[in-house]
Amino acid sequence: MKIRILSIDIDKSEGSDTIIDKSKGVKNYTLYIFKSNALAKTSVGLTDVHAGDILFLGPDFPHYIRSKQGEWAYDAISFKGSDATRLVSQVGIELNSLNTPLQTYFADALLEKISKEIRSTDMLWERVVASCLDELLTKVVRFSKQDFVLSMPDHSQKLRDLRTEVHENFSKPWTIGQMASMMGLSASRFASLYKQEFTTSPTEDLIRTRITQAKKMLSTTKVSVKQVSQACGFESVHYFHRAFKRRNNITPKHYQNHKLSMKGSIPVEEKTFTLDGLSIDSDFSGTMEIVGGEIVFHGSNAEWAEFLGSSAEEVQNKPFLNFVSPQDLNIAQETINNIMEGRNVKDISLNLVTNDGSFSKIAFSALTKGNTWFWFAKKALLQD
């Protein structure tokens, strides 16, 4: 089949002032798949289009598309060739009209495959491209036909039943493949339908439920963070720590201490003094060395620099004592002396002075492993 692909755009974004305006049309076919609302010229005039709508324009028909409000985005593919008209006729897709398919999940994958085949020029690549284009147009027509849409199974209730089962058994090691299999769907199809139904991915939805349960446990018991992680179905305590902190802006241990302290029941501090233990319980960390009797940080991240109100370069080049408040200089110097003598230090309370003159309290720890010193700092807990 002789079809030439002229251009492919995937997830292309345009500014609010960008207008596609080809008043005389072009000598090829173009399929637009809209990812956001816009205004477009069709056979019936200027028409509102919405995310998921598809516009298929034939040769010589004017192209006019612009923003309806703010930025707009779309996928597009343009093609021509001696067999292009025959393919369009066989598929039966309407020209210069708006199609509103029930689903467009298939489009990105097919466009990506076409683009990949064109770049690779592997054996029979032109036939693969023509086949993908045929499938793309066929699915646009199929998912736009009311009789086909009405004959499709309604997955909504099955998805809700599955979600209830998964979230009631949140501690099980659920996978997308397992959930998709229970629905009788492919993993990609299941994920697409799930997001349409619940406006979030299956993975994120389950993580939120697990963290909600974890917060209940941390708020009411003295059980360790590791035990909470395991009870709530997280694959590792490190993953739980990252997931919890990312969504709550506080570590699980800090959250537990705060909640239990409000009830007058602060848990006994864990006796572990290890890299893993300190890493889980800290907000900032990195490596350091002692130069001329001063601590010099290495690997300090952007969050630590922001906490100190300084640039990352300044934090790495400026002696640590320069950040310590005057009233805590003796404690800080004693801490440095202990480190220089090869002794680990843990949870040394220090007030730091930021660039704007304000104070921030931390608990500072340092641990040696081999020839490397690791430092850790956790912020003083603020009220929720």
Rank of each mutant, 00 (worst) to 15 (best):
K113L: 06
L98I: 13
D108I: 09
L124W: 07
Q146W: 11
S97G: 06
D147I: 08
T138S: 14
S201V: 07
S188Q: 10
S171L: 05
M179V: 03
I118W: 05
C132R: 01
S186G: 15
H167R: 11
L124K: 07
I118S: 07
D205F: 10
T104I: 14
R142K: 14
M123V: 12
P173N: 11
D205R: 07
E165H: 14
D122C: 05
C132L: 06
A107H: 01
Q90D: 14
W125D: 09
V128L: 13
T199N: 14
E112P: 01
L136W: 00
P153W: 13
L124Y: 15
L150H: 08
S201E: 10
I114Y: 00
E135W: 04
L193D: 00
S156M: 01
Q196W: 00
S115N: 13
T203K: 14
K158W: 02
Q196H: 06
L206D: 05
P153M: 09
D205I: 08
T100I: 12
G177H: 10
D154R: 14
V141Q: 03
M123N: 08
L124M: 13
V149R: 11
V91K: 05
Q103D: 14
I114E: 02
K116L: 11
S171H: 13
H167E: 15
I176K: 09
L95R: 11
D154T: 10
L133C: 07
S188R: 04
F143N: 06
E117M: 07
I176G: 04
T200F: 02
V166C: 02
E165I: 12
R119A: 11
S151H: 03
V129C: 07
L193T: 00
D122R: 11
K113Q: 12
W174D: 05
N96M: 10
V128E: 03
A109M: 07
K139L: 14
K113I: 01
V141L: 15
I118H: 04
Y194I: 00
S144W: 07
F198P: 04
A180W: 08
K116S: 12
S181K: 15
E204I: 10
S156G: 08
Q103C: 01
E112G: 01
I118Y: 03
D147W: 09
N96R: 05
E165Q: 14
D108N: 09
S115C: 05
H167T: 11
K195W: 00
F143T: 01
A187V: 03
W125T: 04
A109S: 10
L137Y: 07
S192W: 12
T203S: 15
L95Y: 10
Y105G: 02
A187F: 02
Q90C: 08
V129S: 03
H167N: 14
Q178V: 08
Q157P: 01
Q178L: 12
W125V: 04
E126F: 12
T175I: 10
E168T: 05
E112A: 09
M182V: 01
S151M: 10
L206W: 04
H155C: 04
Y105P: 00
S156I: 03
H155K: 01
H155L: 15
F190N: 03
L162M: 04
F148N: 15
Q103V: 09
R160N: 06
I207W: 07
D134G: 01
V149D: 04
E165R: 13
E117G: 03
E168W: 04
D154E: 15
T138V: 04
Y105Q: 06
G184C: 11
F106R: 02
S115Q: 10
P202I: 01
E168H: 08
E197C: 05
A107P: 02
Q103R: 12
E126N: 13
V91I: 15
T199P: 02
